[in-house]
Simulated assay, not measured.
Amino acid sequence: MSGLLVQQWISVDGFLAGVNGEADVFAAVSDFTASETHNAALLGDIDEVLLGRRTYESFAAYWPTADDEPMARQVNALPKVVCSTTLMAATWGGHAPARVVPDPVDHVRSRRDAGSRIILWGSVSVMRALLAAGEVDELELLVAPVALGAGTPLLAPGAAPLPLSLTESQIWPGGVVRLRYSVG
């Protein structure tokens, strides 16, 4: 299936990060084995990884040298696109650099026409722009066993409701729940 899958780690009360961008959602997960196994299988059907600038900077500092990580070979080999109006280039260690595009909506629309399967990781502002434009086909939430009380919500304050239909769910070790929805 072509289209865009957005995958986000989230707290049980709907926050992607703490008030100041803290990674408390990840800190609450004691075992990432199930998510790594899931994503390794998932990446076999992905044509491209889409990232915002901040997520790109974090990933590019980690993945190119994460040789001991089960998904590293796949992540490093997949074509990557960074949505940014400030970057001129997006290196990826000793691997092929990422392509930089200024407009995520235009990019996803052009790739949709080509029949591509894209995954967006993190990148809240890019995700929100694509949701607002109706370009997200599936939303996969990896729910960590923590309530943050405040922070960065999935949807921007005042955003329109997002109709979802649950298509898959799993309970993973350590209290993580995987929920896959079709959007619209």
Rank of each mutant, 00 (worst) to 15 (best):
Q7G: 05
G115D: 10
H38A: 06
L120D: 05
E36H: 12
V75K: 09
D13Y: 04
T91N: 12
V100G: 08
L164F: 01
V49E: 08
A156R: 13
A34E: 12
L130F: 05
W63C: 10
W172I: 08
A89I: 10
S84P: 10
P104D: 07
E36N: 14
E140M: 04
E22W: 01
S30I: 01
Y181S: 04
L155M: 11
V101E: 15
V75L: 15
S182W: 00
T55M: 14
A160M: 05
S165Q: 13
D67Y: 09
S182M: 01
L5G: 00
G3Q: 03
V183I: 01
M1T: 06
N76L: 07
L164N: 02
L154M: 13
A61M: 07
V25F: 11
R99H: 15
A34L: 06
M88S: 15
A41N: 06
A40N: 12
E135G: 00
T37P: 00
D47P: 02
Q170W: 02
R54S: 15
G18R: 04
Y62I: 13
V177G: 01
G151Q: 08
Y62H: 14
G122N: 07
A159P: 02
D106Q: 11
Y181C: 07
G184R: 09
R128T: 07
Q170N: 03
M127W: 02
I119P: 01
T167K: 03
L154K: 11
S30P: 01
I10D: 05
D31L: 09
A89Y: 11
C83A: 15
A41Y: 00
W172D: 12
G14F: 08
H38N: 01
T91A: 15
A72I: 13
P163L: 05
A132S: 13
E69Q: 10
Q74T: 14
L166Q: 09
V183R: 01
V6G: 03
G21R: 06
S123C: 11
I46Y: 03
G115V: 11
H107E: 14
A156E: 14
E168W: 01
R128G: 08
V75C: 09
T37S: 11
I118T: 10
Q8L: 15
A129F: 01
S165F: 00
R111K: 10
I10Q: 05
A114M: 11
R178L: 10
V176T: 12
V49T: 05
V25W: 10
N39H: 08
M1F: 00
S2P: 10
G14C: 12
E138D: 04
A114I: 02
S58L: 14
A160C: 04
A160G: 07
V124D: 07
A156W: 04
L162T: 01
T55V: 11
L142G: 02
V12P: 00
A66T: 07
I171F: 03
A77P: 11
A90D: 03
L51M: 15
T65W: 04
P153M: 11
I10H: 03
A60D: 06
I171Y: 00
R109P: 00
W9C: 10
G184I: 01
L162Q: 08
E138K: 02
A96G: 14
E22D: 07
M88P: 06
